[in-house]
Amino acid sequence: MSSKLKILVPVKRVIDFAIKPRINKAGTGVETKGVKFSINPFCDIALEESLKIREANKGLVEKIHAVSIGPTKSQDILRTALAKGADTTTLVDVGDAEVEPLTVAKMLQKVVEREGSNLVILGKQSIDDDANQTGQILAGLLNWPQATNASKVEIKGDKISVTREVDGGADTLQADLPMIITTDLRLNEPRYASLPNIMKAKKKPLEKLKASDLGIEVVNRLETLKVEEPPARSAGVKVDSVDELVSKLKEAKAI
């Protein structure tokens, strides 16, 4: 690869994946008070991949920059990113505002310009709004190649080759820089940050910006009218034998 990689990794703070979310009383969203938050698992995989690319290709990666757009507390996950090996970070503090993927992508476009990034690695979706959009929108805004749902990323000469998880199996795409990659679960196993690295991360750069510093206004195109529980399933029965199972299946006309 003739040009050095300047990797941008957007990360999102979300309700921890192991927690079952509860709808708030007003029916307008999910209860977030007193709930454990973590880095979105797919973002963690994206960060890990950027670190792996640096380790596997000596001298190729000039910089790994992590960015998060969210409340002030998102700096916690940026500190974790720094502890794991990101060089620098930016927090775009939007307070408690919900920011839609289109706006996030527009902000990321500005960050790409500021940082001179030529490779953006994102998670394929955040596990809260499950949109699966931001990487593709950013690729569209920049008119860069996109490879979604990556399960393998390889640097091959001047090209980056990406194997993707698609319906029915896998396919492989390749493109040269600059490009956008979104990560699937099976791309890698994210590392843990060690205590010494967590201490060191406290001294690493964390730039704080507001949306207005990027010249982007947070305007939502979608209005959430309500958020509700999905219909509950009625209680099932436990059977004691396979025979009973078969007769219940017949009763339910399932076979």
Binding site: E100, P101, L102, A105, D130, A131, N132, Q133, T134, G135, Q136, I137, L138, A139, G140, L141, Q146, T148, N149, R164, E165, V166, D167, N220, R221, L222
Partner: peptide
């Protein structure tokens, strides 16, 4: 909302400057 649809629609959204609704 297949692998193809998920890859395509948000990119189209960027070109049209709209916010898609997923799934």
């Amino acid at each position: 909302a297949s692998a193809v649809g998920k890859s395509l629609l948000p990119r189209l959204a960027a070109l049209l400057d709209v916010q898609p609704v997923s799934d």
